[in-house]
Amino acid sequence: MTGSHLFKLPKLLILTGILLLATGCATTQNSETVGDNDPLEPANRVVFNVTETLDKHLIKPIAEQYVDTLPVPVRTSVTNFFNNLGYLNVILNDFLQGKIEQGITDMLRFTYNSTFGIAGLFDVSTPIGMPHNVEDFGQTLATWGVDQGSYLYLIAPTTTRDITDQVPSTLLNPFFYMQGLIFAPISALSAVNTRANLLEATKIRDEAALDPYSFTREAYLQQREFLIHDGEPPATGYDDIFGDASDAGNAGDDDESGMLIIE
């Protein structure tokens, strides 16, 4: 084992810890009240508030400056580059979910973009019918029947199931094995670029949300369901909010969970 790999050992241990902790938390889901997906809300809210403050005063202004300074084609290439670096994780999860055809296409996509697309700077695959897919280990666990577990807010929204993706996505990212001084500036660029790509989404959230924490949690959990079902979640899932509604006539009683039953 080289010196640089020894240096990264603590990071690996942390990732393994995340995996074990998350798996443990996910398996305790059955003991929780149905519908209660945020048992850690008080702690989550504290982290959310700290992150939001940091974002408002530091990260968001930098991201806005980044958007104002760099032209769209350059930012697109930066996004393409980081997407391509993380694409081995997408390929792995394609196969883990049994999506063989998509996995093969994604392998070709990665190869094309890494070579003809000059290290992924240009997405030469989408125009020829190999679109960018979004797969991760959280989605894989979901397809294997693992519950979402508890909602967590760390730097971004996640759940005890979805956070397990940190392990394969980190280990499969060539950037993780990069050595030397270049590691820090590229990490910073990746963070700023990610935040810049979220500026529009957070603007919409800030315009619409009364309680940004609840809004973010609900949007995240629903978006995950959308991704798990590849954009085609079962329509019946959207029916639950109406309770036993069979007629739009009169509002009836609430059940104990607060669900409005329309009779």
Binding site: A208, L210, S214, F215, E218, F226, Y238
Partner: peptide, 22 residues
């Protein structure tokens, strides 16, 4: 129309969670 769902996000659920928090 009783609900609008944009890219998988149901406006009804979103608003219910948001408003009940307030």
């Amino acid at each position: 129309i009783i609900s609008v769902i944009a890219n998988g996000i149901n406006d009804l659920s979103l608003k219910r969670a948001d408003y009940s928090a307030i």
